[in-house]
């Protein structure tokens, strides 16, 4: 009987790796393609961003241009989505509002992250009393929803975009702190961190080299989800008059004004409503999708 080794490594002692394990887990790209949430979410989110960028340089009309000769115009070739009570072009105002909303959302999410993430890392790394203190503080801030903070700020400073951003950011800080802390605690308890410590790797280097890269997906996912919450909050707060005052083109204001004229032109309510919903849906789906993509165990969900 001839003994013909089919694979050389079978007798060299090196472990042959089955093909599947060479390619490893499916790549992020592969998982992205198989997550409907991620695809739809990315498309919508990208669309929102593109609209916001375009509106910086071009809108069909000036969002503030009043034309009393063409108030409450129906959608037409000239005004794709019609005009409002002052004859302003609805599409232009929506586009310009996208920019404002996105700007406020991104600034407040990043601002909250800038405070919340280090706080969470600190709480995870320290433990003990200082860590507990950070946590309790986060709990306390958590008891004040963005709306309340905005109300307080508006009482002091009056309504403005800054008020909205400040309020939303403050409300998000504890969320970031908690997510970062629990993620970091998880990583810190793993053997590779212990192994790194046994090699004399310093605490800050462990945070930078091991913890941050491993919680990055978690944090990015959270940022996306919070962006959708920020869009919601922004719309609600400006609707209540706590944000940028008229005649600014913002979704919340547009709704507020449209509601007054809904007997005359119900469509004016529908446009901003649909826009807000679409934008929130996009970021939400993107966030959910990212979670699927980053965490293969959740793929079945």
């Amino acid at each position: 009987m001839s003994i013909l080794p089919v694979r050389l490594d079978a007798v060299t002692g090196a472990e042959p790796v089955p093909d599947e394990e060479i390619t490893g887990e499916p790549s992020l790209w592969h998982r992205w393609r198989h997550s409907p949430s991620a695809i739809v979410g990315s498309v919508i989110s990208a669309g929102v961003v593109v609209v916001a960028v375009v509106s910086l340089v071009w809108t069909p009309y000036s969002p503030l241009a009043i034309n009393m000769a063409a108030t409450f115009a129906r959608p037409s070739a000239q005004h794709l989505l019609g005009t409002d009570q002052y004859g302003r072009d609805v599409l232009s105002r929506l586009m310009s509002g996208t920019d404002a909303t996105l700007y406020a959302g991104v600034v407040s999410v990043l601002g909250a992250g800038a405070i919340g993430i280090p706080a969470g890392l600190y709480a995870a790394q320290r433990g003990g009393l200082p860590g507990q203190l950070v946590l309790r503080l986060a709990d306390l801030v958590y008891a004040f929803p963005a709306l309340l903070v905005a109300v307080v700020l508006a009482t002091d400073f009056g309504g403005s975009t800054l008020t909205v951003m400040g309020a939303v950011a403050l409300a998000f800080v504890p969320v970031f702190a908690r997510v970062t802390r629990s993620g970091a605690l998880g990583v810190l308890s793993l053997d590779y961190v212990t192994a790194a410590r046994a090699c004399g790797v310093s605490r800050t280097r462990i945070l930078r080299r091991h913890v941050l890269p491993n919680i990055a997906p978690l944090v990015i996912t959270q940022m996306t989800l919070l962006l959708s919450v920020a869009v919601l909050a922004d719309a609600a707060l400006t609707y209540l008059g706590l944000g940028a005052p008229p005649p600014a083109a913002s979704w919340g204001l547009m709704l507020e004004e449209a509601q007054r004229y809904m007997g005359t032109d119900p469509l004016l309510v529908v446009w901003p409503a649909v826009t807000i919903a679409l934008c929130v849906l996009g970021f939400n789906l993107l966030g959910d999708g990212l979670r699927d993509v980053f965490d293969p165990r959740r793929r079945d969900r």
Binding site: L190, Y192, A195, A198
Partner: peptide
Amino acid sequence: RREVQVVFQDPLGSLDP
């Protein structure tokens, strides 16, 4: 630290992914 090193149980958990 230079002279004492460690190997853990879970081969996946002990390597930074």
